[in-house]
Design a protein around this nucleic acid. Structure first.
Length: 399
DNA sequence: TCTGGGGTCCTAGGACCC
DNA sequence: TCTGGGGTCCTAGGACCC
């Protein structure tokens, strides 16, 4: 069997690099990639975490998702810049669009990462390392930001390889390199080993990826059950996952909002939930999908998260139907306590409506014919601003 | 001035059915 | 009477990713 050939392309410090480009364009004199700098949310709105950091900031111990408070402590005088998500989305589109020319099988893994499956292209590209360098340099020259490219025979190794030395580098991680390049790394560096798993692994004397690769499956199973084999395979660089272009593979749509202040008033929560429901339902209709599950998500002032969900008899994409369900979930799950974050999630998405016919209740169900009307409303709102057309029931709450 | 937002996947436990 | 064993569906919560 022929070996696959997979690239993983990863934008270096994506949000920070992209902001750097925009700032330079706007006449800002410093390239923020070259100074201690971070992209961070607004602390006064309780969005105070690090979204991206410059290489120098990283050297000073600042990590993504650190609080800005702690970043300042680690690096007094650090420059903080706000995120610009629209600009990032535009950069991301250019990046992903560019990669599509090399293979029909490109997986958008995140806003700033992609996998390319180049298997079966050896008559087009005689040297894959050269190709990796070409892609890296092209992106730098065309767009002004740098990437790392990982080259391997599977997705896991390609991803691990692109994470080696940064920025602006090409790395390989083939089978015969796993032992020398991957095994010496700390266990936290292995893809899919997070805080919780690494804590357990270190407690049983597994400190490097090599330790894990050479560990006993029986012992691993005691702690990780069905995940044990996956962990052992990963540490050995084994992975059979296929690169898939899952543009339409959406499984759920959600939105959450950390409130500027904790809210414990139910009526205030209802207003927020309506806006959120409207937003996710619109996304659902834009994808021509229907949801089967509706959920409400909370985080209280003690940072405890919980949720309540329900499965609908009939899938829907109708804002009002979903909102009624959300209100019902609120009624049966809201504890009256101060809420820090609230959100709505739509899940079990399907493309077609399958009406469930009740045996006992033959009344004709209200079907999704309102969907066409809603799409017109959506397009008006998209064109003229969010509250051009709103339901009469929400009108009173216009502040 | 502590701690974002959008996702996927897995597991445990209860309800229910045969 | 004193407790089976499959299986599926559903919900809640948690781990992990960027």
């Amino acid at each position: 069997m022929n070996k696959r050939i997979i690239f993983h392309v990863d934008v270096n410090n994506a949000f920070l690099s992209w902001s750097a480009i925009l700032l330079l364009k706007q006449g800002y004199s410093t390239d923020i990639r070259t100074i201690p700098a971070i992209i961070g949310g607004d602390e006064s709105k309780r969005h105070g975490i690090v979204l991206a950091k410059s290489p120098i900031a990283k050297k000073m111990g600042i990590k993504t998702a650190d609080t800005i408070y702690s970043a300042k402590k680690k690096c007094p005088g650090i420059k903080i810049f706000p995120p610009n998500h629209q600009w990032y989305a535009a950069q991301s589109r250019k990046f992903h669009q560019y990669l599509k020319q090399y293979s029909p099988v490109v997986e958008k893994y995140s806003i700033d990462e992609a996998f390319i499956d180049l298997t079966g292209t050896k008559y087009i590209y005689d040297d894959y390392i050269k190709l990796a360098y070409k892609i890296k340099d092209d992106i730098k020259n065309k767009f002004g930001f740098t990437v790392n490219v990982g080259v391997a025979h599977n997705m896991l190794c390609a991803k691990m390889a692109s994470d080696f030395e940064k920025p602006d580098k090409v790395h390989t991680l083939f089978e015969d390199e796993v032992k020398t390049k991957m095994w010496p790394l700390p266990i936290e560096d292995l893809f899919m080993v997070g805080r919780s798993s690494s804590k357990i692994l270190r407690s049983i004397g597994i400190n490097t990826i090599g330790d894990l690769a050479n560990s006993n499956i029986g012992i691993l199973k005691k702690y990780f059950k069905n995940q044990a084999q996956f962990l052992l395979d990963s540490a050995n660089g084994i992975d059979y996952t296929k690169v898939e272009k899952h543009d339409s593979k959406s499984e759920s749509i959600s939105t959450t909002e950390t409130l500027v202040k904790d809210i414990s008033d139910k009526e205030d929560l209802k207003d927020i939930l309506f806006k959120q429901t409207d937003a996710v339902a619109r996304q659902l209709r834009a994808k021509n999908k229907y949801c089967h599950v509706v959920a409400i998500i909370y985080k209280n002032s003690s940072f405890e998260s919980y949720s309540k969900q329900v499965k609908l008899d009939n899938p829907t994409n109708d804002t009002n139907t979903i909102y009624k369900t959300v209100l019902h979930l609120l009624d049966i799950s809201f504890k009256g306590e101060p809420i820090r974050l609230i959100g709505v999630r739509l899940a079990n998405l399907s493309s077609a409506v399958v009406e469930q016919i009740s045996l006992f209740n033959q009344e004709v169900k209200e079907t999704n014919t309102s969907s066409d009307f809603q799409k017109i409303v959506d397009s008006l709102n998209n064109k003229f601003g969010n509250n051009t057309v709103i339901p009469a029931s929400m009108k009173k709450t216009n502040h």
